[in-house]
C-alpha cells in the first residue's frame, strides 16, 4: 500500500511540474472551467428569481439547492482532476497499442491506467464548490447537524467511488470495442441525470427513471445523497439512501475491478 502511495505521490508531483511548465495554459484552463461554472450558477440564480423552490414541497429552495450544486462541483472536480485525464488517454492507448508498455510494468494495471495523470486546473471549480456548500449550509434552516457534517465527506467519497467505477467500466468498454473516442461525451450524457435533485424525477416516466438511476446505474446517489444529508433534515427514509450509497460505492468498485480485469484478459495488442 505504501509503495502505491509513493508511486501516486510521484504521479502528482510529475503532473504538477507539467501543469506549471505551461502556466498560461493552466490559468486559461482554470478560467475556462470557472467561466462555464459561473454561467450555470447564473442560470440557476435566474431560475430562482421566478420560483422559490425546484419541485413543489421538495425542500430544494435556493440555499439547499446551492449546497447541491456545490456538492456536485466538489465531486466533479475530484473526478476530473484524478481520473478523467487518465481515462481519456486510455482510449488512445488501446487504439495505438500503447497499452502494451503499461501492462508489462510491475504495477497494478488499473492503478497505473486510471490514476497516472492529475489535472490541477480541475480543482478551481472544486474550491468554488466548497464555498457554495459553506454558504448554503450557513443559510440552511435548520442548520446541518454534526452527524450530517461528519457524514458529508464520507458520502462525497462514495460519490467519487461510484463515479470512478463507472469511468473504469467505460474505459474497459474501450478494450472490447476497440474504439471509444467519445468516452467523455458518453460520460457527460450519462451523468447529466445526476446533476439535478432526484425529487424532480416524478410521474409515470420519472418514477421508473429515478429507480433505474438509483438502483441499477446508481448515478443519482452520487450527488443527491451527500447534498441531501447536509442541506435538508435527515429523515428515517434517508438513512436507507445513505446505506444504499455506501453499498453502491463498494459494489461499483468491485464490479469495475472485475470488468477491467475481464477486459484486459481479452486485450489483443494493436502494435506490431
Amino acid at each position: 500500500m505504501m509503495r502505491y502511495l509513493q508511486i501516486f505521490g510521484t504521479f502528482v508531483a510529475a503532473s504538477l511540474v507539467r501543469d506549471m511548465t505551461f502556466r498560461i495554459n493552466f490559468i486559461l484552463e482554470c478560467v475556462t472551467s470557472l467561466g462555464w461554472m459561473g454561467m450555470n450558477l447564473a442560470f440557476y440564480l435566474l431560475v430562482f428569481s421566478y420560483t422559490s423552490e425546484i419541485g413543489q414541497g421538495s425542500g430544494w429552495t435556493k440555499a439547499p439547492f446551492f449546497v447541491f450544486l456545490g456538492t456536485g462541483l466538489i465531486i466533479n472536480a475530484i473526478v476530473q482532476a484524478f481520473f478523467m485525464p487518465s481515462a481519456e488517454e486510455f482510449a488512445e492507448m488501446v487504439r495505438t497499442g500503447g497499452l502494451d508498455t503499461t501492462l508489462v510494468k510491475p504495477v497494478d494495471a488499473q492503478f497505473l491506467l486510471s490514476m497516472h495523470r492529475v489535472k490541477f486546473s480541475a480543482f478551481a471549480n472544486g474550491l468554488v464548490g466548497v464555498a457554495l456548500v459553506c454558504w448554503g449550509a450557513s443559510k440552511a434552516d435548520p442548520a446541518p447537524s454534526l452527524t450530517a457534517w461528519l457524514l458529508f465527506p464520507l458520502l462525497i467519497g462514495c460519490g467519487v467511488a461510484i463515479s470512478y467505477g463507472l469511468i473504469v467500466m467505460l474505459a474497459a468498454a474501450t478494450i472490447l470495442m476497440g474504439r471509444n473516442q467519445s468516452l467523455y461525451d458518453f460520460w457527460f450524457y450519462i451523468t447529466n441525470f445526476s446533476r439535478y435533485p432526484a425529487e424532480i424525477y416524478t410521474g409515470p416516466w420519472g418514477g421508473p427513471l429515478r429507480m433505474i438511476c438509483t438502483f441499477v446505474l446508481p448515478i443519482l446517489l452520487v450527488v443527491n445523497v451527500p447534498a441531501h444529508t447536509l442541506a435538508l433534515p435527515i429523515r428515517a427514509g434517508d438513512v436507507r439512501l445513505i446505506i444504499a450509497a455506501i453499498v453502491a460505492a463498494v459494489l461499483m468498485l468491485v464490479l469495475s475491478r472485475l470488468t477491467f480485469q475481464a477486459a484486459i484478459n481479452k486485450y489483443r495488442s494493436a502494435s506490431s
Binding site: V47, Y50, T51, S52, E53, I54, G55, Q56, G57, S58, S182, D185, F186, Y189, N192, F193, R195, Y196, P197, E199, I200, Y201, T202, G203, G206, L209
Partner: peptide, 24 residues
C-alpha cells in the same frame, strides 16, 4: 448514436422545468 445521445439533456430539461413550474 452520438446525435441521439445529444438529446438526452432534453429529458432532464423536461423534468427540471416541470419541477420549476410545479413550485412556481
Amino acid at each position: 448514436v452520438g446525435t441521439l445521445f445529444r438529446f438526452l439533456p432534453i429529458v432532464t430539461q423536461i423534468f427540471l422545468w416541470t419541477a420549476v413550474f410545479s413550485a412556481a
